[in-house]
Design a protein around this nucleic acid. Structure first.
Lengths: 231, 231
DNA sequence: CGCGGCTTTGATGTTCATCAAGTAAAGTGG
DNA sequence: CCACTTTACTTGATGAACATCAAAGCCGCG
């Protein structure tokens, strides 16, 4: 972890047990006694590609994005994750350093558990280990599937995808405020910023959505779905 | 598993312990007594998207491709895997049915271990579980990274990627026989068959590679690498 | 031997990134 | 708090990259 924001009470880890639900009370208590809670404001970097992994990180509240720097130092957003989603956990077990950067896109609360303790718990509690295996598998599938969905569509389909992603997966409603800029949308679904804007405007003219700055309202959910399906 | 090819002696699982290296001798013996070995000829389907997962599959010999059917029933190749690579194992722990299809692209020997036995062993042996977690993580990363590499490049870079993939990762030499058709290359790196051919010809004219049907020889490895890097 | 699938090359049109130029919004420092 | 700078947003025009269509040769297989 790069910065060292104010520690919290620890209560947050209880509220959102999430990934830790298979632990015994005793094991869970050990975590409560050996963890740190960090606050990140919108825009702050949570961890950087290449840094050493010390903590097993775990999003309590907020919204984050996973980045990877590609060719020509171009940033690609791998995923946007909400609490209980796997953060960058895909790589926490595989290497000693982060393979992705993680940035807060909304004010976020992150719980950090010492990596060695985490390993120890995995070895003690096989049910916990199985649960984590299952969750990693699902997260891996989601990542691969998302890429497949995005890359097999042309621009209109991609924009439909990203709007539906935020509406259905992140916010659970048809009216929401985009937590990321047009440029970040472009990095997320592999297209140019200009075309993100152009197609959003098109959808607005076609009365599929309404736009007010970052506020998006889906006016015709079915039609948006159809645009997504058709590509 | 769809078909039920002739069972083998079981010796194959010993030769290539691979994913199972963390098991005790006793545990490994249980697998030897509870597994089936299947032979698949080039082109045969090993398992199909949507089928129920009964066996934990595990490639002993040969070469396979992972497929997923996308929009318009267009097939996308997710990955090509050789022995000790994770086959479709990414999803074996997550759902009760296969999320990908797997097809043999060379004659292959597949070892099938009863899924319940596998789960049991994971719960008994936490070192084994940790090892599997680590391998799933790495496989997931590889899958995501591969997609990122492919999709952030234009066609020349993609073709360079796939040639280097076979030369370095699969065969370990600069002269090899392509195990897949031009069309399958297209499915693997998201481009049209015609352009696969066109760019292969271009590389031939530029004396970067020589082509004789499916036989490829890399003549200028450095230059090919540069084409890959530049995109 | 003939049919279908794979391969190859050329021609055409579409999709998309890029460039340019301008407006609006949001930080920044005096 | 205002002038200044930067960053985000927007639209139009242009050209490049690429898919698609078409047509023909090739090969394996029944």
């Amino acid at each position: 972890m790069d910065n060292n924001k104010g520690n919290q009470t620890g209560q947050e880890c209880i509220e959102h047990k999430g990934l830790l639900e298979k632990l015994t009370d005793e094991q869970f208590n050990r975590i409560l006694q050996n963890h740190n809670t960090f606050l990140f404001e919108k825009g702050e970097i949570i961890c950087s590609e290449g840094n050493e992994i010390i903590n097993f990180l775990f999003l309590q509240k907020g919204l984050i994005k996973l980045l990877k720097t590609g060719k020509n130092n171009k940033e690609h957003i791998i995923n946007v994750a909400k609490p209980d989603d796997f953060i960058g956990l895909l790589n926490f077990f595989s290497r000693s350093e982060y393979l992705y950067s993680v940035t807060a896109i909304e004010d976020s609360v992150v719980c950090g558990i010492d990596f060695r303790l985490m390993k120890q718990l995995l070895e003690e509690n096989s049910g916990f280990a199985m649960d984590i295996i299952e969750k990693i598998s699902l997260a891996a599938n989601d990542a691969v599937n998302a890429r497949l969905k995005i890359n097999s569509r042309q621009l209109r389909g991609r924009i439909a995808y990203i709007i539906l992603f935020f509406a259905e997966h992140i916010y659970g409603k048809d009216h929401f405020e985009l937590p990321i800029s047009r440029k970040e949308i472009a990095q997320l679904i592999d297209m140019s910023t200009e075309n993100v804007i152009r197609i959003l405007s098109e959808f607005r003219k076609d009365k599929i959505i309404s736009i007010d700055g970052k506020k998006i309202t889906i006016l015709d959910h079915d039609r948006l779905k159809r645009v997504y399906e058709l590509g």
